[in-house]
């Protein structure tokens, strides 16, 4: 019973994770394609490690933004623009 309770708690925490990030908007690939030419859009490539290093492609116009260097670029982009980050 004790093990089951622990498992349930873990499951609930796991299930709640997306809810904790609910205030971050998500965008589908098709949605992004539709607004790629927009001047109000900034696309940031937040891939790291091999996800960044091994890939030959990036979204056209995307700017590299390493999450570990957030302090150096976090305030560089105008907040009134739509900022899209992708990480895989």
């Amino acid at each position: 019973m004790k093990k089951l309770s622990i498992l349930l708690v873990f499951f609930m925490l796991f299930a709640l994770t997306p809810a904790l990030a609910a205030n971050v908007g998500m965008m589908s690939l098709d949605e992004l394609k539709g607004v790629l030419d927009s001047e109000n859009l900034i696309v940031l490539d937040a891939r790291t490690g091999k996800d960044w290093g091994a890939s030959e492609f990036k979204i056209p116009g995307a700017i590299r933004a390493n999450p570990s260097e957030f302090n150096s670029w976090g305030n560089s982009y105008p907040k009134e623009k739509k900022i899209v980050l992708y990480c895989a």
Partner: peptide, 9 residues
């Protein structure tokens, strides 16, 4: 996700 982390290199 170690491969997606810079520390792997």
């Amino acid at each position: 996700g170690l491969a997606g982390d810079d520390i792997l290199d």
